[in-house]
């Protein structure tokens, strides 16, 4: 079975937004629920790609199978995309927003904004979800959210790129919907986001954003509960007391980790559904492949039974071992030579 969902123009980076067994994208406003809704000449929005015009249906023989495709052409640059007919509903295609929807977007952009999400993991996942399934208002939410964040601190590179690409998508859709050039559409957006001094915008209550729900789009904040913090190190026979202070980082370290994590998450292009469920993936792992630490744990338990009084006495050497291991870890870091190895 051919799993290619789209043929892109050369030069554009191929992105795999979902796994082979695609989950259904929750239907937002104007979502296309059936391939029968599409006809040649229709203008649709391909999430994270832009506005396309449906050219028509095509049949192709691929790997001995006759498959039906919808051919679409991106209005911005004329790039052609072939989407298998059975994938039309799962990729999140939707109609171009109406003028009423666009007006709501401007009222949303002009409204005062509560605090931006500061947890980068939640923010990144939310932004990706909203770009795919949130409709035009979802794209506006991403732009406004990142814009508000940029007022607090400069955006990291990956988020700066996301901000630019989501702004591009929003400009493109507004321009198509209102029938104005891109530059004017962008002026409208920034007129709402940053009105000139002394100008009071005639704002109405903004529309309610699309609620993203459903099994693959669980909106669960990664709150660090005790269960989630338990990495199973105790089961591996590692004394957590000996590693005291290892997990405690300064604010700078946290920031560094954040940017690293952001880069990693962007490079991997992990489907959102996979990112959301790290705890569920943890449970079956030991069953499939019993770790070598299990006998060690049993041995430790035996030792504890036979000589319970000796256990506290053995703790200090473990600490010492951990201290010995620390310089080794430092030395392993590229560009940071260990102090002890200076010649």
């Amino acid at each position: 079975m051919v799993t290619v969902s789209a043929v892109r123009t050369p030069g554009k980076r191929e992105r795999t937004d979902r796994k082979k067994g695609d989950e259904e994208v929750p239907s937002g406003a104007g979502a296309i629920s059936s391939s029968a809704d599409l006809a040649a000449g229709d203008r649709v929005v391909y999430p994270k790609q832009g506005v396309y015009a449906v050219t028509g249906l095509e049949q192709k023989d691929i790997a001995g199978q006759r498959l039906e495709f919808v051919r679409m052409t991106r209005e911005e640059d004329g790039a052609s995309v072939l989407v298998p007919l059975n994938k039309v509903t799962s990729i999140g295609l939707r109609r171009v927003a109406s003028a009423t929807d666009i007006e709501g977007v401007f009222h949303y952009l002009g409204a005062s904004y509560d605090d931006p999400e500061l947890d980068w993991k939640v923010r990144h996942r939310d932004n990706v979800e909203r770009l795919i399934a949130g409709g035009v208002l979802g794209v506006a939410e991403v732009v406004k959210g990142l814009h508000s964040l940029s007022r607090l601190r400069p955006l990291p590179t990956k988020e700066r790129e996301l901000y630019d690409s989501s702004r591009h998508l929003l400009v493109n859709e507004i321009s198509v919907s209102l029938g104005v050039p891109d530059v004017i559409a962008e002026d409208y957006i920034d007129f709402a986001l940053m009105p000139p001094a002394g100008v009071k915008l005639p704002l109405k209550p903004p529309p309610t954003p699309v609620e993203l729900k459903g099994p693959p789009w669980k909106r669960k904040k990664p709150v660090a509960s005790e269960e989630e913090d338990d990495l199973g190190l105790g089961d591996l026979g590692i004394d957590l007391g000996a590693l005291e202070g290892v997990g405690l980082g300064t604010a700078d370290e946290a920031e560094e980790g954040e940017s690293k994590g952001e880069e990693q998450s962007e490079e991997e292009e992990v489907p959102v559904a996979v990112v959301v469920a790290p705890v569920a993936a943890k449970a079956p792992a030991p069953k499939k492949k019993p770790s070598k630490a299990a006998p060690a744990k049993r041995k430790a338990a035996k030792r504890a039974k036979t000589a319970p009084a000796k256990a506290p006495a053995k703790a200090p050497p473990k600490k010492a071992a951990a201290k010995k291991a620390a310089p080794a870890r430092k030395a392993a870091k590229p560009g940071k030579p260990a102090k002890g190895k200076k010649k």
Binding site: F106, V183, D187, P196, P202
Partner: peptide
């Protein structure tokens, strides 16, 4: 002058054809 938008007319300092 720019065309009037949904929230008013943004001030025009110039214009360009995107791309």
């Amino acid at each position: 002058a720019n065309p009037k938008g949904p929230l008013g007319e943004p001030p025009a300092w110039g214009h360009a054809l995107q791309g």
